[in-house]
């Protein structure tokens, strides 16, 4: 019977992680905590909303990189695993890009942004749950 053999595939799993001491995990953990505090601090700096968003996503990406590479051992793992991880983020970005491109460039009349919602009659809602889905919109 054919012996399964990953013919010509990836080099054997790097054993770097096997010999690393547990200390590296603590270093990564400290870095993650620091970045959490940083992202919190940055969000308190007065900036435009876009800058806040960009900064928050940038820091989140660094944290994801750290967790993926070290806690999840992607660093030194088989190339296929890195590829899978990268490709999945690529397709998330694709989905985000085209949907946002749509929302951002829509003909204004079809864009929900310009049509504010009708005000909600708060007095009704304080006392009773709306009986039907249409009730609060009236």
């Amino acid at each position: 019977m054919a012996t399964p053999h990953a013919a010509g595939t990836e080099p054997a799993h790097s054993h770097a992680t096997h010999h690393a001491s547990a200390a590296r995990y603590f270093v990564v953990w400290i870095a993650l905590l620091t970045l959490t505090v940083t992202t919190f601090g940055v969000s308190r700096i007065p900036m435009s909303g876009h800058m806040h968003l960009a900064a928050a996503i940038f820091i989140a990406c660094i944290k994801v990189f750290l967790v993926a590479c070290f806690f999840m051992h992607l660093w030194g793992s088989e190339g296929t695993n890195k590829l899978v991880f990268g490709v999945s983020f690529f397709f998330v970005a694709t989905l985000l890009f085209f949907v946002l491109a749509d929302v951002a460039t829509r003909f204004t009349l079809t864009n929900s942004r310009i049509r504010p919602l009708p005000d909600i009659d708060q007095s009704i809602l304080q006392h009773q749950r709306p009986p039907s889905p249409e009730a609060p919109a009236k």
Binding site: A2, T3, P4, H5, A6, A7, G8, T9, T80
Partner: peptide
């Protein structure tokens, strides 16, 4: 990825 017999390359 992992079960190709020897000789069966990509």
């Amino acid at each position: 990825h992992t079960l190709r017999a020897p000789g069966i390359t990509w």
